[in-house]
Nucleic acid binder design. Sequence first.
DNA 1: TGCCAGGGTCTTT
DNA 2: AAAGACCATGGC
Length: 291
Amino acid sequence: MILRANGPFDFGVMYDFMERQDDCLYQTRGGKVRRAEIFGGRRVLFEVSESAEPDGLEVEILHDEGAGECVVSEYVADWFDLDYDLERFYAFARRDGRFEAVTGEYYGFRMLAYVNVTDVLVWSIIGQQINMKFAFELKRRLVEYFGHFIEYEGEKYWIMPSAGELLTLTVEDMREMQISRRKAEYILNCAEGVENGSLSKEYLQSFDSYSGAKTHLTGVRGIGPWSANVVLMRTVKFRHAVPVGDAGLRNALKITDGLDGKPGAEYIEDIISWWGQFGAYATLYMWRVLG
DNA sequence: TGCCAGGGTCTTT
DNA sequence: AAAGACCATGGC
């Protein structure tokens, strides 16, 4: 089946981006992306690739234990953020010189969302203050510990464990994976929140204001302003959300603004205020400045 | 080698 | 309110 985006979309640009990540929950090969998921206990493996039609993508289900096309297409649309009116961001970006090069080079690039709230919470904790390569390795160890995968054509496609399963871990279990003691505590704390509903996707989506949701998230131990904004940006899709203090964003601003050193908090706050409802996409494109 | 990495909490000034 | 210590470890 073919899905179409609300405005510009370039699967090739997305693929190049995804290829450079090392997320164990999807696999890139030969221009196609494969992912296994579980919906209501039914596992499914699907493949996403370039479509013949412009601004769209092709979805093919390779293995299905009863999830159905509808659920998968909804998932993919969410994952690639196909519903966002990207042209509106581009219209804004034309008034900010920082984006001149990147919006041209990466035209049709959209946010790669985290559909699964447990996934984004774990990532926003593991990803705190360590290099990305190591962070992806830690996530891989955590995921593979639970042994959920679909095997297809001799390859394993891993599935994120549920929050309930994460709760069966101890801090010591995660220490053996080289996850720090603090982060292990944070992960358990967040898994508990997903289980009891205080961090469920439904609940986070029920906030009608960005600041209300942010206040709720930062009240959770282990979730600071950076992590809260990662969750709000990439899962709940509040378009104002910017991971304040993000090292990549600061490095990018240093380049685009020709600064001598990294910008301070005040400097960034002013820019975020200017970006307004385009903050999330502005951040994504700023990250592309770094290559 | 030493600093940095897509930070956060807890303790001290 | 703001600044510092500490966490942990790999990458470059």
